[in-house]
Write a protein that binds this DNA or RNA. Structure first.
Lengths: 228, 228
DNA sequence: AAATATCCTGATCGCACGGTCAGCAAAAGT
DNA sequence: ACTTTTGCTGACCGTGCGATCAGGATATTT
């Protein structure tokens, strides 16, 4: 978890209490703002997004946004806490003993699923990186680099034990990232070229199957019949 | 070529002539502005870039930018004329008779080379697509879609003739796009994780080799020893 | 040298931006 | 009941934006 330190929803012990019966107004508005901000930032980038439009989207006055988030940057960073959390919540338990084909197939599948379920997060992350990662540079240099090296060392061990073909592990991770995230980030291009309005389940399965087939075969692995 | 219609440099028949001996001032400034604009737009996105900063980068007064380009959007679109031209200038002569392995290997190599030589173009294009391609939607729906379908039909023919494994041709094109462009667009992430300052020739060759190996093997092809 | 056409830019416009703040509203504590 | 604490927001501020334009600078034509 990156330590930007601005997503803890401090529910006050005293003070105004919710008007609504279902959950606090605070949490509700907080999430509405985050959701609105995600859409705005993903569509217009950090500089292009405006607090006013985020407020409009959330159905709140502009000043209320600044009541919850001290600045535009704090709001932006709060989104990345969520994204990075989402990102780290899988493939953390991979062991050398595991089956390479199973692990890679599951990894690819999971990434494609995230493309389908959280396209905005992926776009937001992509825009940030393309612009030089001005806000999350530290995270990449520390946690993300460590994560990659850990996974790479597992892959290297598999190669040493002849359990898969000798390919560069870091580039393999890049390949899985790029090929899967492409369907989220370049959604517009993919859908337009394929003449579709939006992704549907069968297409997600098709993408997942295609990438698994190519990449696993490329690694000298057999595609597992079931990717539990 | 997309028909934005704003890059024709109309050299006037009469009027002021260049101070410089080598080429006209007009062409010189025109290119300086385009170059400066490419950097600004790629770093800050359409909304985030400012005419003033583009002017500073080009070493010209702000009003001079508006003398050459009527509006911010016209300047932005002019960049895409160049990008799309760059993009279309390869793989247009592929025939069914060609060798699949040779063609795909050359395609991958060419794309990685473009990543190395024109990273800003790739970033600019990526940002545009992520934001929903508001300015080049028409180009994608027409020329780009046609391009993809043409290449896909060639690949389908190869598959029919058992010259390669039966994989989805359109997704194969997406895979080559995504995996190659990743190194341009996510340059910051890649370099940071690999602990490098910038790309060098040997790394470009390494990337090219890795992707060719995985993708061609994934397609049931043998990597050609020489990718003329 | 005068006329003409293009090149160039300082000054300025209206506008939207991020951010601030005084002060009221509402709930909780006593 | 009334004080305290927090929730909320209309109005406002300084800044930088894209764009405009009058008018001077410069080169060519006559």
């Amino acid at each position: 978890m990156v330590t930007t330190g601005n997503i803890e929803v401090v529910t006050p012990k005293r003070g105004r209490r919710p008007r609504s019966e279902t959950g606090t107004i605070r949490d509700h508005n907080y999430q509405k703002i985050l959701s609105a901000a995600e859409k705005e930032f993903a569509q217009f980038g950090y500089n292009g997004a405006s607090i006013q439009k985020i407020a409009d989207r959330a159905g709140l006055p502009k000043a209320n946004i600044h009541y919850y988030f001290a600045s535009k940057e704090k709001l932006y960073l709060a989104l990345f806490d969520n994204i990075i959390h989402l990102w780290n919540d899988h493939l953390d338990d991979v062991k050398v003993e595991d089956d390479p084909a199973q692990v890679l197939a599951r990894f690819i599948r999971k990434k494609v699923e995230l493309t389908y379920s959280h396209p905005l997060s992926s776009k937001l992350f992509a825009m940030e990186i393309i612009q030089g990662a001005p806000h999350i540079r530290k995270y990449i240099r520390t946690e993300m680099r460590t994560w990659v090296r850990n996974k790479a060392s597992v892959i290297e061990e598999w190669i040493r034990k002849k359990r898969m073909k000798a390919v560069d592990p870091v580039h393999l991770i890049f390949l899985i990232w790029s090929s899967t995230q492409h369907y989220a980030d370049f959604e517009t291009q993919v859908l337009t070229i394929m003449n579709r309005a939006e992704y549907e389940r069968d297409m997600i399965d098709e993408i997942s199957g295609f990438l698994t087939e190519i990449i696993l075969t490329g690694c000298g692995l057999k595609v597992p019949t079931k990717t539990g």
